[in-house]
């Protein structure tokens, strides 16, 4: 066998290995989804969705968990959306290149790398204790808002960066002020991108359990929260709780709850991908 034959053989071998590795990722994903569907799908019925939690697996439902998750979604959006977009607009449109903006940038990328459980410790001290909000929905939403703030800021900046400078020039040349230009031209033109980023950030928030456990969200909440100051649980915590129990019946409950959680996560991601594709098709400068 010549040297070149050997090289060609190695090349082919790596190709096969490459396909194999790619398949591992996909097969694991498939096994995983199928396993959960087999275990949990049969458990999902109207009663499961509308029942309160219970110490008896067969009677337990996820009503309070998904109600809590919805509450958290709405509150987190209300808090994080204006804050993150404002910060992104400031950094992209207003900030001069100086030490402060440089520091802000480094700081935000650092915050993006802080483990979520650390945000839990922050929320525990600041929101739960110092501000006296307790283990409430509001504490949870504030904590998660800080957690996803870096993601929203970064995606907002990218969306704004994609708006061509000529649009701003055109607006300024007609006598528009900075804010009029941002509000009338830059934000409408980048809205699709910003929205995509926010939905992706929310899908991250929906799956978080660790920081909420730290701030004291409960596993057992026998009522649907009716105000932001009520105690709560969310789907991931409910799943964690059921998974930690030895009885097989609770594992099935956990699988069923996972299906619901994945449904929400995939739905959010699907919307984000759809918006992104639509946006890319629509805008041709």
């Amino acid at each position: 066998m010549t040297n070149s034959d050997k090289n060609r053989l190695k090349d082919k071998a790596f190709q096969v290995f490459g396909i194999f590795c790619t398949l591992i990722g996909l097969v694991v994903l498939a096994v995983f989804l199928i396993d959960i569907l087999i275990k949990g799908l049969g458990r999902i019925d109207w009663e499961f969705l509308t029942s309160l939690p219970s110490r008896r697996a067969a009677r337990a439902g996820i009503l309070t968990a998904w109600a809590g998750t919805l509450w958290i979604l709405v509150l987190t959006t209300i808090i994080a959306f204006p804050l993150g977009v404002s910060a992104g607009v400031y950094l992209e449109e207003y900030a001069r290149k100086n030490r402060l903006s440089n520091f802000l940038e480094i700081n935000i990328s650092n915050l993006a790398g802080v483990p979520s459980i650390i945000y839990g410790l922050l929320g525990m001290e600041i929101f739960v204790r110092q501000m006296g909000l307790g283990g409430s929905l509001l504490s949870g939403a504030l904590t998660l808002s800080l957690l996803i703030l870096p993601i929203i800021i970064v995606t907002t900046r990218e969306a704004i960066k994609a708006v061509p400078g000529s649009i701003r020039d055109g607006s300024y040349a007609l006598g528009a002020s900075k804010w009029q230009t941002v509000w009338n031209q830059v934000l409408p033109a980048s809205f699709g991108g910003i929205l995509t980023g926010i939905i992706l950030a929310l899908s991250r928030a929906v799956g978080e359990a660790a920081p909420l456990i730290v701030i004291g969200a409960l596993a057992y909440v026998p009522f649907i929260p009716s105000s932001p100051l009520d105690e709560f649980t969310v789907l991931p915590i409910q799943i964690f709780n059921w998974t930690s129990r030895p009885q097989e019946a609770f594992l099935i409950n956990a699988a069923a709850a996972i299906i619901m959680l994945l449904f929400i996560t995939f739905l959010l991601n699907g919307i984000a991908v759809y918006l992104r594709n639509k946006q890319q098709k629509k805008i041709k400068w």
Binding site: D169, G170, S171, A173, L174, G175, P188
Partner: peptide, 17 residues
């Protein structure tokens, strides 16, 4: 106010979307 008095047209047409 100045730019209302002094209009401008650019190199590449830049209509707003």
């Amino acid at each position: 106010e100045l730019r209302k008095e002094v209009g401008m047209v650019f190199q590449k047409p830049n209509p707003f979307p």
